[in-house]
């Protein structure tokens, strides 16, 4: 009889422990707030200073993605080249920069360049003509 009580008590403790552990593992994780990459903010500001107001900027180590509505009076290629320069400065270790340009809220063109190419051009190790050849332009 005494053993039965002990076993019952142990069983209750085990059930509570398992339930507690279960609830801790599956319920108790506080919701972590995402860590933001401040480089996106920095590039957003750089684009704004040049007249591009509401760009979608996504800077990660793997690459920089930028999308924006082409401001009135601005040329697609010129704005894309400007974005390349600013993006490479803000995130020199990213692999590439992809600029998607919208006109009247519809995708219009996409310019892609690798960051090493942009930096090479800036360091005058790559000629302008050679760099331009390496820029991939897609009409969307």
């Amino acid at each position: 009889m005494k053993w039965k009580k002990v076993i019952l008590a142990l069983a209750v403790i085990i059930v509570i422990a398992v339930a507690g552990l279960f609830s801790y593992l599956y319920m108790s994780k506080p919701e972590p707030l995402p860590e933001l990459d401040s480089r996106s903010t920095e590039l957003f500001a750089a684009l704004y200073s040049g007249g591009i107001d509401d760009a979608l900027v996504d800077v990660t180590d793997s690459g920089v993605k930028v999308a924006y509505e082409l401001p009135a009076g601005m040329d697609s290629a010129v704005s894309a080249y400007f974005t390349f320069g600013a993006a490479a400065r803000v995130s020199p270790k990213s692999k590439d920069v992809v600029v998607t340009i919208f006109k009247s809220q519809k995708p219009s063109a996409q310019f892609t360049a690798t960051v090493p190419d942009i930096l090479s051009f800036l360091d005058k190790k790559l000629s302008g003509a050679e760099f331009s050849k390496r820029v991939k332009i897609e009409n969307l």
Binding site: E42, Y81, G85, A86, R89
Partner: peptide
């Protein structure tokens, strides 16, 4: 475009500092 890129990049550097 090459000149534009050069200027754009120069601006990028300048903006970065200000920002």
């Amino acid at each position: 475009p090459t000149g534009v890129l050069y200027m754009g990049a120069a601006r990028g550097a300048s903006v970065s500092g200000t920002f």
